[in-house]
Design a protein around this nucleic acid. Structure first.
Length: 251
DNA sequence: AAGAGCGTCAACCGCAGGCGA
DNA sequence: ATCGCCTGCGGTTGACGCTCT
């Protein structure tokens, strides 16, 4: 940095000194922050307003909770990230005392890596389907290329399966039974045990919370925020209110 | 002992959106 | 309608400290 911590305008950049922190804290305690642009001059700081705002909101604010993230907090971040993606400020509103910057850093340096190590895609929160995990499929494809008869047989199976899926995914007709398509396939299998878990946002998610700590017996998680971020698997749906602020947020 | 490599996190940058003139 | 100002957000950078070789 050729400007030695000073911007073109001569304003200081880089780490804050304790003296600067004191000036900022004292000024805001007495006057509030008001206009961030005007603040540095009024507080006697040679910084831009943006730098002051950032220092205050991410570090000096009295309600900031510092220190390690608890397992509850980790789980909450993970679950909210599965719904909200990289909406750090939205996630931060559900973690009192934590800043978006802190959460973002924690995600990038800890949780993301952990998900990758566990074989999950950190963006989709689903098991990775990259080149390595799809290797068996690619090998099967190679087999098919080398065995055209097998390929035709599987193509036919795929076509029948496609018809079948199209049928079962249709909304149910007024009267069932009489007009079933003549498919040589068994009736649709009953939903599996985890059917509803898989159809909700985090049913597939790895649980980072130690067993028994915040998990209910069915393996679903419960946060202690008491709002819509809590859930108990499929049981949550009857209680879903679309006007809930959380769901408005993610809509 | 030293320096290369890596992890962490505070701080910066650029952009987008809200709002008032 | 549009322009400028202000704030907030998400991505990225860079300094620092720790670990490894």
């Amino acid at each position: 940095m050729g400007t030695m911590g000073r911007s073109e305008s001569g304003l200081k950049k880089g780490p804050w000194t304790p003296e600067e922190d004191d000036k900022l804290i004292n000024y805001i305690q007495k006057h509030g922050h008001g206009s961030w642009r005007a603040l540095p001059k009024l507080a006697g700081l040679n910084r831009c307003g943006k730098s002051c705002r950032l220092r205050w909101t991410n570090y000096l604010r009295p309600d900031i909770k510092r220190g390690k993230f608890s397992q509850d907090e980790e789980q909450t971040i993970l679950n909210l990230h599965a719904i909200l993606g990289n909406k750090w400020s939205a996630i931060a509103t559900h973690l009192p005392g934590r800043t978006d910057n802190e959460i973002k850093n924690f995600w990038n340096t800890h949780l993301k890596k952990r998900l990758i190590q566990m074989g999950f895609d950190p963006m989709t929160h689903r098991p990775r389907t990259d080149i390595f995990s799809s290797l068996p499929g690619l090998l099967a494809l190679k087999d098919l290329i080398e065995n055209p008869e097998q390929a035709i047989r599987i193509q036919n199976e795929a076509a029948r399966l496609n018809n079948y899926l199209t049928y079962i995914l249709q909304p149910p007709p007024p009267s069932l039974g009489a007009d079933l398509p003549s498919l040589a396939l068994p009736p649709p299998p009953p939903p599996q045990e985890n059917f509803f878990q898989d159809s909700i946002a985090f049913g597939h998610m790895p649980d980072l919370v130690t067993a028994g700590q915040n998990c209910s017996s069915d393996g679903s998680w419960i946060t202690n925020t008491g709002d819509a971020t809590s859930y108990r698997g499929a049981q949550m749906w009857p209680e879903l209110h679309l006007d809930d602020s959380f769901f408005r947020e993610i809509a």
